[in-house]
Design a protein around this nucleic acid. Structure first.
Lengths: 131, 131
DNA sequence: TTGTCTATTGATTATTAGAGAATAGTCTGT
DNA sequence: ACAGACTATTCTCTAATAATCAATAGACAA
């Protein structure tokens, strides 16, 4: 999982088949976490897998845990320790707060706008090709 | 133009009508610049306006100029000084290199993938609402 | 008790974004 | 010729974020 820097869009054109992630993916991390948590309470460790099973490659655990803590500082999610014997140490269970639900709605709007921007860009690409 | 920090998606829900930009917008800056330059040679100062006239709010000039220099370091674009009497100091005219054209094609693929991710997220939003 | 898997945290570094000021050429009006 | 406005680019500094790596720790099996 190397650090991506400016120009990353040019790497990975010799058979990078195993899941990668890009700055674009990272930009969707926050809303994706909120969305997953809004569906049902989750803890960080399962979110690692959940994210991988969606499109978004392998994101470093510390990035995910940090983001979760930051979302909690914003009071968008809240956590409790689950001591139920699972198969490991106690885990922090996150759930969405009312404020988080609001935030999620704003995210939806932002993503719709972003989607339009990308559509527009991709159209420009096509008209470029047809010249 | 304040610095956006974690949680920015929650700001601006009391009538922010004048063009803003978000980290999402910034993530499209690089490919947009390449695309605009691929259409025709341009210099930084016009790109400021071009970007504004597309969807992407007001981005601080220093961000755009820096990005252009970095793209030039990558040899994706190249520049010459245009001394033609315009109405100001000489300006740096950027054009796309062959490497830049390759990069642009990779960007197109990345954006298509990104678009799918967002579509998927927005679908999840909708099925959340209908529950 | 050693090792493996589950689970989270913290320290440190690298990279990027943004504010703001500095520099400079051109043009218009006085 | 000088001031002020507009065009055009660069540079420095700070704030914020991403990534790596190491540390901690419980549960369980050999």
């Amino acid at each position: 999982m190397p650090r991506r820097r400016r120009g990353w869009a040019m790497n990975g054109h010799h058979g990078e088949h195993h899941s990668q992630h890009t700055p674009l993916t990272i930009s969707l991390l926050e809303p994706t976490l909120l969305l997953l948590i809004s569906q049902k309470e989750r803890h960080g460790y399962t979110l690692l897998n959940d994210l991988e099973q969606m499109n978004m490659g392998t994101i470093h655990p510390s990035v995910i845990y940090r983001t979760l803590r930051e979302l909690e500082e914003l009071c968008w999610i809240q956590s409790t320790w689950e001591m139920d014997q699972t198969q490991g140490p106690p885990r922090r269970i996150y759930s969405l707060t009312p404020l988080g639900e609001e935030a999620l709605i704003n995210w939806q709007h932002q993503l719709e706008l972003h989607q339009k921007s990308i559509d527009q860009l991709l159209l420009m690409f096509k008209s470029n090709h047809s010249e």
